[in-house]
Write a protein that binds this DNA or RNA. Structure first.
Lengths: 103, 103
DNA sequence: GAATCACATAAGCGCGTGCTTATGTGTTAT
DNA sequence: ATAACACATAAGCACGCGCTTATGTGATTC
């Protein structure tokens, strides 16, 4: 389960899809717009995300709407919480880190 | 960078190594104990974790000590924060996470 | 300085992953 | 009913990943 989540997120295309869904529910066709990805590829990615409980689906006529599934996020949060002792003390450090990575 | 982190965590063996390191710094040989993994495999896994900034190393004589690198965890926390709107309302771990990130 | 130890790197291999094209399934429209 | 649409599944292929064995690189010990 935890394994499925991390494997699902290991693919950049899948993370991009997930990010798109963060703005709101969308059907598979809409998700494809501006992504340069074939229809089967999208379907397969969504299937992986669903199995990982990162995304859930709901039929709406001949469309299928997808949306972020909180369960998956909760699992990641729980995983992350195990290493809380190692988090940087202040958010400032985090911001600095992000700036470093932009370059 | 973000990609390297998630790819690194996609492997269960690497997550197990990371979890071991969460208990404290350790050298590569100690990490191997009870893990049924070859020496080169361990070295390669640690290399991947280091490149992802999840782990950092420090030479100590002919040993090399490894320890959790907060930078990687910060990146994950930051990624997770983007989807905060979807977190389930009542999970203690998440509350703790929120508190740390808000301050 | 030669042997040994701890670890890194090289090269090769089997297997999974993500893509493609082709086809199947379910829904809507005419 | 038939066509068109939205999506899923099948099959095949190129590539990457994680493993192995073999060898290289530093550091320590005698």
């Amino acid at each position: 389960m935890e394994n499925e989540i991390f494997k699902a997120l290991a693919d950049p295309t899948r993370r991009a899809i997930f990010e798109k869904l963060a703005f709101g529910r969308m059907n598979a066709s809409s998700l494809r717009e501006g992504m340069d990805i074939s229809q089967p590829a999208m379907s397969q990615h969504l299937s992986v995300l669903c199995q990982a409980k990162l995304v859930r689906q709901e039929r709406d006529g001949r469309y299928v709407n997808y949306e972020v599934d909180p369960d998956g996020l909760a699992l990641i949060a729980n995983w992350l919480a195990k290493y809380r002792a190692y988090w940087p003390a202040r958010i400032d450090a985090l911001k600095a880190l992000l700036k470093d990575m932009d370059q």
